[in-house]
């Protein structure tokens, strides 16, 4: 059951007025322009024990993604494909609003947005992960760990997921006599990423559209739109969030802005993926 949140922090009215009057002159509380994103910092291969990982900061927001590749059984309707599983945890240390316990609806929503963008674009060659089609396949577990919530968790998670998957190595599994897959020394290769996909979120506050919203901007926004893109500009997913509404014109403008932001993310990611693994 989804319940209207009653624990969100109260943004003082005067603060909201300030945000709006700043937007009117093309500025934001942290000095950014409406279309600017915060500083992005990407550290690939942050967790040595994972098969792929990335730590991403967007401003004060911190998201860590760890990937593990493990044996599993294929879906009956897709017997000759491996599986990508995207999971998200809003761990309590990340925000006073996060509670221990099973994932809440926001975590599920985030995971599903990221999952859909990769799944629908077939960004990962899942066929390559079928060790024994119909019997044994490899499952790519992509765990998103939110470490500090300062807004725009979706974009940070999308960047971290793309970088982690792009740097994921496939462990060397061999079938033993009993038919089990056993992990051997070393790696068999790297995960094949056929397409890069990213998600960019735009918030509508009053009549203004802002890129990479902060937590406070999220609370005062009427609605947000997350749009996923591949590098050629194809839309690969979309999600309107928040309890407000948008007009057709708003959506066009927000998709335009999301594409501009996506290109910035792609360029940050290319630089990061190009770096040698952290030793």
């Amino acid at each position: 059951m989804s319940v209207t949140p009653s624990t969100y922090p109260l943004v003082p009215k005067i603060q909201k007025d300030t945000i709006l009057s700043l937007l009117e002159v093309g500025k934001r509380a942290d000095g950014r322009g409406l279309e600017d994103i915060r500083k992005v910092k990407i550290i690939p291969n942050y967790i040595e024990k994972s098969d792929g990982s990335a730590l991403v900061n967007i401003g004060d927001t911190v998201v860590l993604v760890g990937v593990k590749v493990e044996p599993g059984t294929p879906y009956p309707d897709l017997p000759d494909e491996g599986i990508l599983m995207v999971n998200a945890e809003f761990v309590p240390l990340a925000s006073p609003l996060f509670e221990p316990g099973p994932p809440d609806e926001n975590a599920y929503e985030l995971a599903r947005i990221i999952d859909r963008s990769f799944r629908e674009t077939k960004s990962i060659d899942l066929k390559e992960l079928a060790v024994q089609p119909g019997q044994k396949v490899l499952v790519v577990w992509n765990d998103i760990y939110v470490l500090n919530h300062s807004g725009n968790l979706i974009d940070a998670s999308a960047i971290a997921t793309l970088v982690a998957l792009a740097r994921t190595k496939i462990p060397n599994y061999e079938m033993n006599e009993e038919g089990y897959l056993v992990k051997k020394e070393g790696y068999k290769g790297t995960l094949k990423l056929t397409k890069k996909v990213i998600t960019a979120t735009v918030a509508k506050i009053g009549k203004y559209y802002v890129a990479d919203p902060t937590e406070e901007e999220e609370y005062v926004s009427d609605a947000r739109l997350s749009v996923s893109f591949t590098e050629d500009g194809t839309i690969a997913g979309m999600q309107k969030m928040g309890a407000g509404s948008l007009e057709e014109g708003d959506i066009d403008a927000m998709v335009d802005l999301a594409w501009k932001v996506s290109q910035k993310y792609f360029s940050e990611i290319s630089t990061a993926i190009g770096l040698p693994p952290q030793e």
Binding site: G233, I235, A236, G237, M238, Q239, L246
Partner: peptide
């Protein structure tokens, strides 16, 4: 006013 918008899949 649009209150729900999602896209699963790809579109130009």
């Amino acid at each position: 006013k649009i209150v729900l918008l999602q896209l699963n899949g790809t579109l130009t």
